[in-house]
C-alpha cells in the first residue's frame, strides 16, 4: 500500500541518450498524488522524452525512475537491476494512461471500440459491461452520441477527447499528456482543455507537457521549465510564469506568452 507521503513519480538523476546525443542530462523531480504537474520548455528540451520514459516507451540509460514506489522497467534484486518481461511491463502500464499529441486512436475501430479495447483485452472485462462503461466514459468527455463514429469521421478535438476516454477506461492512477492540444485547430483546444480541467478537479494525478501557459497557470499545481535536457527552474506555475528567476526561462516565456 502507498503511504500518504509517497510521491506518484520520483525521478533521480535520469539520463537518456540516443547514440551520441544526450537528451536527458540528469532529471530530478517528484510528482505528488493528485497534483497537476506541467512540463514546459522549448522543443528538443527533452520534456516529451522524459514523459515517455515514465511509462517505459523509452528506456533510460542511468538514474532511477519510480512510479508509485515501483521502479519502472526493472526489478532491483540484491543491488542488481533485472529487466522486466514484456508481460510485466504491460502490467505496470495499465496504471499509467497516456494521451498523445497525434491522438493515435485505432482507425479501424469505432470510438466506442477504441475505449472498450483495453478493458476487454487487458482486464478481461465482459463485453457488455465494458460497452456500458465505455459509453459512460464517452459521455463524460461530451461525446455520448459519437460512439459509432470512426476516428476519421471525428474532428481533432473530438478524437483527442476519445483518446482521453480511452486512457481513462483503464482507471489509471496517473495520466501523462504529451502536448495534447498541439495538433489541434485553435478553436478546438478549449474542449480538450476543459476535459483535462475536469479530470484535474476529480483529483487525478496528471503530468502535462504543454505550451498552453494559460492552462498551466490556472490548473497546474507545479511547473518545471526544462531546457537542454535539464530542469532549469521549478515551482508553482504562477510563481514561475509571472516571476521567472532564470534568464533562459524569461527568454522562453517572453516568446510564448
Amino acid at each position: 500500500m502507498t503511504t500518504p507521503l509517497q510521491p506518484m513519480v520520483r525521478a533521480e538523476q535520469v539520463h537518456k541518450s540516443y547514440g551520441q546525443l544526450e537528451v536527458l542530462k540528469g532529471i530530478d523531480l517528484e510528482v505528488q498524488p493528485g497534483e497537476v504537474f506541467c512540463l514546459v520548455g522549448p522543443s528538443g528540451s527533452g520534456k516529451s522524452t522524459f514523459l515517455r520514459c515514465i511509462n517505459h516507451l523509452e528506456q533510460i540509460n542511468a538514474g532511477r525512475l519510480y512510479v508509485d514506489g515501483d521502479l519502472i522497467g526493472y526489478r532491483e534484486k540484491n543491488g542488481k537491476l533485472h529487466e522486466l518481461k514484456d508481460r510485466e511491463v504491460a502490467l505496470k502500464r495499465r496504471d499509467i494512461g497516456m494521451v498523445f499529441q497525434r491522438f493515435n486512436l485505432f482507425p479501424h475501430l469505432t470510438a466506442l471500440e477504441n475505449v472498450m479495447e483495453a478493458p476487454v483485452r487487458v482486464k478481461g472485462e465482459p463485453k457488455q459491461a465494458a460497452r456500458e462503461r465505455a459509453e459512460a466514459r464517452l459521455a463524460q468527455v461530451g461525446l455520448a452520441d459519437k460512439g459509432a463514429s470512426y476516428p476519421s469521421q471525428l474532428s481533432g478535438g473530438q478524437q483527442q477527447r476519445v483518446a482521453i476516454a480511452r486512457a481513462l477506461a483503464m482507471e489509471p492512477k496517473l495520466m501523462l499528456f504529451d502536448e495534447p492540444t498541439s495538433a489541434l485547430d485553435p478553436e478546438l483546444v478549449g474542449d480538450v482543455l476543459d476535459c483535462m480541467r475536469e479530470l484535474a478537479e476529480q483529483g487525478m494525478t496528471m503530468i502535462v507537457v504543454t505550451h498552453e501557459m494559460g492552462f498551466a497557470r490556472e490548473v497546474g499545481d507545479a511547473l518545471v521549465f526544462m531546457d537542454g535536457g535539464v530542469v532549469v527552474e521549478s515551482g508553482h506555475p504562477r510563481e514561475v510564469l509571472t516571476n521567472p528567476q532564470h534568464e533562459r526561462t524569461r527568454a522562453f516565456l517572453s516568446k510564448v506568452l
Binding site: A90, N104, F106, E117, A163, A167, M170
Partner: peptide
C-alpha cells in the same frame, strides 16, 4: 502501420502479441 499505434496500444497495457493481433 504508424508506430504511434503500437505505442498507444502499449500505453494501454496490451502485450506485444495482443498489439500485433488486435491493432
Amino acid at each position: 502501420v504508424d508506430e504511434g499505434q503500437a505505442e498507444a496500444a502499449a500505453s494501454l497495457g496490451l502485450t506485444h502479441a495482443q498489439t500485433l493481433r488486435r491493432i
